[in-house]
Nucleic acid binder design. Sequence first.
DNA 1: GCCACTACTTAGTTTTACTATGTAGTGGTA
DNA 2: TACCACTACATAGTAAAACTAAGTAGTGGC
Lengths: 110, 110
Amino acid sequence: MKISTEMLKGVLEGIVLQIISGGETYGYEITKELNQHGFEDLVEGTVYTILMRLEKNQLVTVEKKKSTKGPARKFYSLNAAGQKTLETFWQNWEFLDQQMTHLKEDNHVQ
Amino acid sequence: MKISTEMLKGVLEGIVLQIISGGETYGYEITKELNQHGFEDLVEGTVYTILMRLEKNQLVTVEKKKSTKGPARKFYSLNAAGQKTLETFWQNWEFLDQQMTHLKEDNHVQ
DNA sequence: GCCACTACTTAGTTTTACTATGTAGTGGTA
DNA sequence: TACCACTACATAGTAAAACTAAGTAGTGGC
């Protein structure tokens, strides 16, 4: 099973924030992690554009570190604004989740 | 609480399908119903574009009926393809929901 | 006659993710 | 040492979906 790409809009940014909140990480690793957790078709390009957006919106701090396996990695961490945004994201998600549950149950005629 | 608009992309079409599956209805009514169920900021224009997409994609049948309160209403019903799409939508939603739950629990460091 | 409410339509914009491609560093191996 | 696989980041252009904003039109009440 894979997730329809349109359904991810507005959710993917929160997902990436959540992963970063679990500990300093970088784009390539985030992509691999998501690929192994249901987001099979997600490619690097998508993750990098999100990371750049997060940086532009000042939700993360970035630190470049050398790797033994390739080019230098850009490690991302959440700052206070990022934490706040993440909390708001989960509140929104939970609210939407509730509405969807109601919608399905209330409206289920059959 | 209102739902962030970006989070709705790809979800709203399923929501509208679900509402129609509960019984023949029309755009204006769907809008009002959603406005009263957490989707406060949703406006008619958005619903109508979705309805036209559903019609274009042949997921619904349309019947025009006179109203005593204004212009004629366009009543929508799901056809077989619409039912199928709705089922797939809920499967996708549930899968995403599960992934989100895992993501939040597995990754929750604090 | 005007207004509120009902009801549908649509052109243009914004946001977000995808497609596709490119650049570059490291280590293994033939 | 030349090549390849893998690691790692960047970005221009496109597509999809919802929003903004404005319009048209019918009905009944005051």
